[in-house]
Amino acid sequence: MRGLLLLLVLGAAPLLAAERPLRFSINDSWAMPMVRIEDGKAVEGILVDLQQRLAAKVGRKAELLVMPRLRVQNALDTGEIDVRCYVSPNWVNSGHYRYIWSLPFMTQRDVLVGRIPGLVQPEDIEKKRLGTVLGFTYPRLQPLFDSRQLLREDARTQHQVLLKLESARYSYAISNELSLHWFNRQRPAHQRLHTLSEIASDPIACIIRDDPEVPTMALLRAMVQMKQDGEFDALLARYR
């Protein structure tokens, strides 16, 4: 009897090992509606819902690992995380044979934001400080930063950038549309910040590590099915 129990335990061990949680990265510079971080843990937001749903689709739990943006890609390359979501091919300098891109599930639009409505292009601004997120790249704006036509002023999160713009720490800032809509949603009309022009539009996807420990193809198929069933649109609509 003891021998039978031992065989059962040993036989179950590989299955238990295979069912470890899927490790997703959370960039600590993100803010709502992408994610709310409390005490170093991701507690709500689009990415929390998306990644928990994606893991459940393949019969796993999601482990959400909060880390600095500059650590995320290295963590994927070295196998510390399994999935990196909310990333664009336009933001990653090179591909890697160890991971596979999913289909894009949304588009991120980055916009120039101001306190006064109007149509303004960044190239028309001279010698003004521009609110940006620490570590984020803005290819269209980089020549303007290099020539000192625009003076980049970083904050740690997108929410902090918008707060500083609201308090007139600078005249203009860059934000993605989702974050700007979230910031404005509980403010009266006269206090809302305004989109002045679009500066970039990028497809957003997930990178999945191609490894025997990761159900890579199952995750890719799950994302295709979620897209076809309208789950991504429904998820985003909850945070607009």
Rank of each mutant, 00 (worst) to 15 (best):
R2P: 00
L4W: 09
P14E: 04
P14Y: 09
A18E: 12
R23G: 01
S29F: 01
W30C: 01
M34G: 03
V35S: 04
R36T: 09
K41C: 00
K41I: 02
V43N: 08
E44W: 07
K57V: 00
G59L: 04
K61H: 06
E63R: 07
P68Q: 05
R71S: 15
L76E: 02
L76V: 03
Y86T: 02
W91Y: 13
Y97V: 06
R98W: 02
L103G: 03
L103Q: 11
F105W: 14
Q108D: 05
R109M: 04
D110G: 06
L112I: 10
L119K: 13
Q121M: 12
Q121L: 14
D124S: 15
I125F: 04
G131F: 01
Q142E: 15
L144R: 07
R148Y: 14
L150F: 05
E153I: 03
R156I: 12
L165D: 10
R169D: 11
Y170C: 15
A173Q: 11
I174N: 05
N176W: 13
E177Y: 08
L178Y: 14
S179Y: 06
W182K: 01
R187Y: 00
H190T: 09
R192W: 03
I199A: 12
S201D: 12
P203M: 03
I204R: 04
C206Q: 08
D210A: 00
T216Y: 01
V224N: 11
K227T: 04
D229A: 15
